[in-house]
Structure formats: structure tokens, C-alpha cells
Amino acid sequence: MDILVYLRVFAIGGAFCLIGQILINTTKMTSARILVCFLLSGVLLETIGVYKYIRDFGKAGATVPIIGFGANLAKGAIEGTLENGLLGAVSGGIEAVAPGIAAVIFIAFVVGLLATSKTK
């Protein structure tokens, strides 16, 4: 376990959240809009080939934030297209994030069945 790696993870991940907080404070954006903004920036940065440098430097700091989810989608789409042409272009993105989406739907379904909203 390398302390320096963890410091980089902390810095990059924290920086993304910091940008998110600035957006919340100054634009009164709701959480859904913030998520979409970050997601689209991830798609864009991956497409123009910048995000892989951020990922190499920040490790989980770049993959855990939702911006990494966007980058993953774009990465999948690019690889899929290069391998399978048009079909890959359509399915590549969702294939790359399929485990995450399937997990979130299934887990939300189970937890939704079991849990109840708590008194505030």
C-alpha cells in the first residue's frame, strides 16, 4: 500500500467533489443536474483522449466519481466501434458500464423492498 497513491486518489477525487460543491453553491443546481454535468464532461474528456492521463494519475480518485462512469461509457463506445463497427457503436458504452447499472437496479430493488423511509 503506497501512501503517495492514496494521497493522489484523495486529491483528485476531492477536487472533483470540490468543483461539484462550487456548482451547487453558485448555480443552485440539483443533484440530478450535477450528476449529468459530470457524466457528460467524463464522456467528452475520454473522447478527446484526456481522461486516461487523469485516470493514470488519480486511480480510484478518477474512477469512483460519476465523471469516471462517463469516461467508462465513452471508452466502451470507442473500443466497441473499433472492434464491431456500427453495432459496437450502439452497444459498446452500455456494455462497459453494464455491471454497475445491473448492480444498482438489482440492489435498489432489494433494498427498496426491505427498507422504509426513516423519521427525520
Binding site: 467533489c17 451547487i24 450528476l35 469516471g68 444498482v104 427498496g112 423492498l113 422504509t116
Partner: peptide, 24 residues
């Protein structure tokens, strides 16, 4: 935490799970 727990993928998971619980 504000954005600190919205921007990570955990924030996405929370925004799927919470309406599921609420609307059961």
C-alpha cells in the same frame, strides 16, 4: 458533505435507492 457524497458513484446509487424506498 454536499457534493462530496453526490459526485462519487455512491451519490448515483443513493439517488436510485432513495426513491425506490420512498415509493414502495
Amino acid at each position: 458533505a454536499g457534493a462530496g457524497s453526490i459526485v462519487p458513484i455512491t451519490g448515483f446509487a443513493n439517488s436510485v435507492v432513495s426513491p425506490a424506498i420512498e415509493h414502495k
